[in-house]
Design a protein around this nucleic acid. Structure first.
Lengths: 227, 227
DNA sequence: CTAGACCCGATTGCATCCAATCGGAACCCT
DNA sequence: AGGGTTCCGATTGGATGCAATCGGGTCTAG
């Protein structure tokens, strides 16, 4: 499993995929908040293309869950309700332990060292954007050993769609909550070193469940973005 | 969760979605086997449309996992390797019990009666196509109570992509294997009636796992379709 | 003054036309 | 004769232009 921003590998000559990739990046970096309208002509002008590949890009992003299309009306950056976000976290809670199980046997010592370093850097930073990036790199890095085709992509998609809310939540996260997160990260690395996949699965499931519970206590994050 | 063939609801004025819906039906009914090439112009002529909406339809089906696109080359009905199919079943094994858990509390007595009838009809039929249809109706029917947005669609997608192989496998399924399948179906209904969601989850997970194990003993189903 | 219908601008959806790319076949060279 | 190369047809990809649809503003009637 090799992932960068999480999109398909850009196929040569396919402008739609290239445009989708760019737009995806903007959304994930938070430059375009949920609810923002996306006009085809604007995007086309920006990329020096016609509206045809733009529509293909929007279709791609729709199925990535990042954009919502309404026929004859337009496209918007997707918004999640608290219930939908909760649902996605429940899916992650079941799927990511499986993905970790499939990955664990193929992780090298170097991979584990990388994970450890990421976990440590995460404990030290106070910058939200850096934290988000490291967190993503840590978790997806733990899945590097998996040779899956569907599951890996799906997990990335689930991370992507919830990214704006994870960002908003991270800003208001207290030091105590952060401490637990870091401890869990280190626990997972320790389990992987010990070859205790069962416990790694358990810790990871708990890690995701805990985050889900905390998120659901902040409904204002979802209402605030409904502007 | 309300599902018919599993596609998005056809939006008025969106030819791409309508065409996708039709093509999806053909693939799922087995009229177009995996590996078949799909030429844009053929489809366009068949639907009396231009190639533009056809390309949109293909893009939709690509993300449904039913069609594989290669830039500047063409589109084919997707093929799965045994490993990919196994992976999808592992995903189902984790996701469907969750979906059942979310659905169970909202199932009415009438829903349960429907499930029971489906399970019984399934025990009686010997026609493969009817069995497939009933099996699908049973499982997806059990999820009718869930109000999920993402999970339900995903499960339908996983069913759809593995449909051709389930069909091929069903043809060669012995009476003993069928008996176990039917018993598990009835067990699930009984658990749902008892309100024992935990056990229903377990039986369902085992049901899917068993099918996965049996499928993986028939690699010829995947090679045979590589023609 | 408010509720409803109408109309028009803005935007999306689709068809047609042209350009770019790939696969295959014939050809040439070794 | 076999392998590599070059050309060409078939097919996909993208741009332009026109038709269809939706939302907002205005005008009218109650």
């Amino acid at each position: 499993m090799t992932v960068t921003t999480g999109g398909r590998s850009t196929r040569g000559g396919d402008a739609g995929a290239r445009i989708a990739e760019q737009l995806r990046g903007r959304i994930l970096r938070g430059e375009v908040p949920p609810g923002t309208r996306i006009r085809q002509e604007d995007v086309a002008a920006q990329f020096g293309a016609s509206r045809v590949p733009v529509r293909e890009a929007l279709r791609i992003l729709e199925h990535d869950g990042l954009v919502t299309l309404v026929a004859n009306t337009g496209a918007w950056v997707s918004r999640l309700t608290l219930a939908e976000c909760d649902e996605i976290y429940q899916m992650r809670e079941r799927l990511e332990p499986l993905l970790l199980r499939l990955s664990a046997p193929h992780l090298t010592e170097a991979d584990l060292d990388d994970l450890q370093r990421l976990a440590e850097r995460m404990s030290e930073t106070s910058d939200v954007d850096e934290f988000l990036e490291l967190d993503r790199a840590f978790h997806l890095g733990a899945y590097r050993g998996a040779t899956t085709t569907q599951l890996g992509e799906l997990v990335v998609k689930l991370w992507n769609t919830t990214q704006p809310y994870r960002r908003a939540y991270s800003r208001s996260m207290g030091a105590d909550a952060a401490r637990i997160v870091h401890d869990e990260h280190h626990l997972i690395v320790a389990d992987l070193r010990d070859g205790d996949v069962d416990d790694a699965e358990r810790v990871l499931a708990g890690h995701i469940r805990r985050t889900r519970r905390r998120l659901s206590r902040h409904p204002e994050l979802f209402e605030a973005l409904q502007a």
